[in-house]
Design a binder for these strands. Structure first.
Lengths: 381, 381
DNA sequence: TGTTAGCACTCGTAGTGAGTGAGTGCTAAA
DNA sequence: TTTAGCACTCACTCACTACGAGTGCTAACA
């Protein structure tokens, strides 16, 4: 059973619906997801497996509409599911969807990559998910600001540059290659490392008092100019907008759906991916931040699977989209992967794929410690 | 003067053209770049500063067409520049274009970023270029395969992971966070570093004999499983497709031009950016690789500024685009930045902006050694 | 009382065809 | 050599029509 988070906190109750209404609603949404076009009573009677006349279906449709589950684009068009309708639909999704052979094949790649580098696991998962679902996949590699640098290291590269390594609270390592005006020796670099560890570990960088910073600069001697660069690098790693942790794949997939066939729509979705990664980050982080931007309601089930309906966000780019997402452990931290698709996307398949992903990443607690013999059992539920 | 690289190596000669023809051709292209629509004789007579009657202009146009400088979309439309026409046009571009105040303002940002981290300089430059030109900017951070790893380093992160640092021939540093199944100590990591430096420096990784690799695994002891991971990381860094070095910004800009107003066009250009970075890399690397894919001809001037006409590549996504690009030193290596726009893009402005960029990055030989007092003199030529 | 057939009505869409206007090429006069 | 005039082309716009999928209502039926 899914939980509903509404703006006003109420919990929805569709138990009013008769079984027949449920069946009809479900058929309508299935048909709509399939075709992308408003579905009418006649077609539903003919191709949906409902043994009722179009007229009866019409009556039911009309009631479903007044109950808020369906919308009408215009008088003489068929019906289209409303956000409420979609919510009902995903709630009924418990019946399992069996992933196809090719889908399982692709998802199987995941287990192969569990042994690879930390930073690329999520990347690969993201690409694979976009390939499997044929929608866009969005991922967030680190879902909180890391706060402070736990430990510094510095690697000598050459006379004029070194690599600053910052190990964060969550065990992830960030690096930044820095250049110096003055000649650097290996010894200089070692000293820099020691100074940083002595002075900046666990320090919230925007709260450094000026005198402390000046003292640090003095300790750097002729390399004092580096202090600013280092602080800037550390700051952007701990306090940065984190947009580099947001990855998007499969935009092209998205553009092939009719809901993005106008250039404006396409443009707004490309813009989202190109210059609004911060917003996507907020979306994936869910919770308060999203709430304040009107990015709720969202529904969520007991497996941590969450669904966001873009329609209700008031955001133009997201208007016709939905996002299904969930988080799971990767290394010492958490990753979030979501599928962004048209709001009429194939929820069954998407939910099944994400569940498969979450299970194969999270099953052993620590996804990056390979167990070598991971099986694929071919069933997604 | 620009040099022309043709498929068959011939050098073009437009000296045949009378001054009047040149003037008319130039006006037509200016008008077309401005409006994006075929330009007719009447309009040209009215708004271009040519004191000839439409009829005369028509005669000249007709001759320019048969000489191959102009094309006609259909009988009763105006004329449109052909690839040859564009080539003539950019060749005449010597007359300088003065960048506007806002443009200079934006470009001025470049000098501020000269002091920042190595890896982000090109990123920022790319973003700024797309902002200034209102087209897409593409950049290549490293224009050759690095060959081998010059030196290894390893930074202990925690009990189950460490950061592998690979310093390449060109002085750039690449890192990869690796996880180990068995508990790691700082000492283990130090030993790993020594083993790598003793065995893999300067080694072409795909030519390691099996016995050597087995010996290395033995030396790793219980951490033998790491050898494979390390080799894979090093291989992808030295021999990888290098697509992560290709950055694209301003796709959204591109989508607002009418030549990309069909979804198919938009899709193909998004696809190019999303999953064909390898091709973009080849383009920016120019030379042989491009040649073999039919990615020539290209014209090039004495400042290293190059222009590629997508029309002639036979590549659908590039069909309506041009790419103006040039390379300049960043740190110890070379970067290439290009502007990808509709083939009727504002070459004057783009060339001026790129020249400004190349000059402010390359002027001091070593762009990453700040001189603190870089001036902006407000003239682009 | 629930279900269905019939029918009038709505409304988006595809197709048609006349009108418009920007553009060309040709010819003959200046 | 330049220009005015003229016939012709052709994409584009717009009003109009026909079509058809769909609805809602009413009355008959099981």
């Amino acid at each position: 059973m899914w939980l509903y988070f509404f703006g006003r906190g109420e919990v929805m109750d569709e138990m009013k619906l008769s079984d027949r209404k449920k069946q009809i609603l479900k058929s309508i949404i299935d048909a709509y997801i399939d075709s992308g076009e408003p579905v009418g009573s006649k077609n539903l009677a003919a191709y949906g497996n409902i043994s009722l006349s179009p007229a009866t279906i019409r009556n039911e449709m009309s009631e479903l509409e007044s109950l808020g589950y369906l919308d009408k684009p215009h008088t003489s068009a068929g019906r289209v599911p409303s956000a409420q309708g979609y919510k009902f639909y995903v709630d009924q999704l418990n019946e399992d969807y069996r992933l196809g052979v090719e889908e399982l094949e692709l998802l199987g790649e995941l287990t192969r990559f569990k042994t690879a580098q930390v930073e690329s696991v999520i990347d690969r998962a993201n690409k694979i998910m976009s390939g499997v679902t044929k929608y866009a996949a969005v991922s967030l590699a680190r879902n909180e600001n890391a706060g402070t640098v736990k430990r510094f290291d510095a690697v000598y590269i050459g006379e004029h540059s070194f690599l600053l390594v910052m190990i964060l609270e969550d065990g992830s390592a960030k690096t930044s290659q820095l250049a110096s005006e003055f000649t650097l020796t290996e010894n200089d670099v070692r000293k820099i490392k020691e100074l940083l560890n002595a002075n900046l570990c666990g320090v919230v960088l925007d709260k450094i008092p000026l005198d402390q910073m000046m003292a640090l600069e003095d300790a750097f001697g002729k390399h004092r100019a580096l202090v600013g660069k280092i602080l800037r690098a550390a700051y952007s790693v701990t306090r940065g907008d984190g947009t580099s942790d947001v990855k998007i794949d499969g935009l092209t997939n998205l553009l092939s759906y009719p809901e993005f066939s106008s250039v404006e729509k396409a443009r707004s979705i490309v813009e989202l991916a190109e210059s609004r990664k911060g917003d996507i980050r907020k979306l994936l982080e869910f919770s308060e931040v999203g709430e304040e931007k009107g990015l709720s309601p969202v529904i969520s089930d007991e497996n941590g699977m969450k669904i966001f309906f873009g329609e209700e966000s008031g955001d133009g780019a997201l208007a016709d989209t939905s996002l299904v997402y969930c988080s799971f452990p990767v290394g010492n931290t958490n990753a979030v992967i979501g599928i962004l698709g048209p709001k009429r996307m194939d929820y069954k398949k998407v939910v099944a794929s994400l569940k498969f992903l979450a299970r194969s990443m999270g099953e052993n607690g620590e996804a990056l410690l390979p167990d070598g013999s991971k099986r694929i059992d071919g069933d997604a539920e």
